[in-house]
Amino acid sequence: MHGVRRARQTQEAIAAQKLKEKEKLQEYLSLTNDVLHRKKTNDFTQEALALTTRLLTANPEFYSIWNYRRDILTEGIFPQTSAKDVNDILLAELSLTMSFLRSHPKVYWIWNHRRWCLEHVPDDQGQQTIAWKQENWSKELYAVEKMLDADARNFHAWNYRRYVQASMPGKYSDADELKYTTKKIESNFSNFSAWHQRTKVLSSLWETGTLDMAASKDEEFELVKQALYVDPYDQSSWIYHRWLIGKGEDEGILKREIQVIEELSEVEPDCKWCLESLCHYKRLLLASFTHNEDQRIALVDACQSLLSRLQSIDPYRRNRYLELGEF
């Protein structure tokens, strides 16, 4: 149970509640018994299908009933149905599950059933199959955007979005996905799910040469800098910044970004993320770009002083800073 407030009820209130529930409970139990009996005896009729709809409406987490429903469709219904009608049935399944998702956006079994529907569009109808798939998958992308509008961090929806993009005919372009993540980030800089998605999309765009990595990285540093200035206490953009820096292969970028953060740190002296990032990036400099002993000593000193400051302003992670100080 997540986020349901605890209310202390009197014995009378509990008894009244149970009485009210009694009829509902009896109905649920007899429906469950009926459906499970039919399941056991391989009843693959329309009537059984309708009963699974009722039961799943009462309890969309009852995954064995979703399983049974799929068996009814493939064993009992589809064999005597035209390809077009099969596609229509699957579309109806998709709208049914959409209504369930609105009230249960995090139930794995509902998301699963959608995948199953999309994967069971009749495959042997040539052009018609392609048209159906195109239409169904585009609708799906729209549906998942609605889900992400309602909760921009729902990881079921993000995973599903990636799955839809990978599966739809005429592959969805990474460039379009980059725009989508920009939109999500601009509406809320704190949306780490969108920043994460951006790391995946940009990696792919750089790898395929669709985007020039150096120029694109500079734009990303600009974007994340805005986010850092809007709220330097939000982790999301700092973690993204760390992805952009990576192992710190580019000395110029590393030094430039250290300077950017030092400026921010002057304005926000108590912001632990500034200090923590500075320490991490200076350690990267230390590992790869110390050209003489004086520089080395200066960097170690700088890191030590950052770490000791971090120990006092971020005491929960004190032991981590102590360990990092063992050069």
Partner: peptide, 15 residues
Amino acid sequence: NFDGGFGSSVGAESH
């Protein structure tokens, strides 16, 4: 993922 974490499937956010 780059943050050292793991997701539920390839490409998924660390959790």
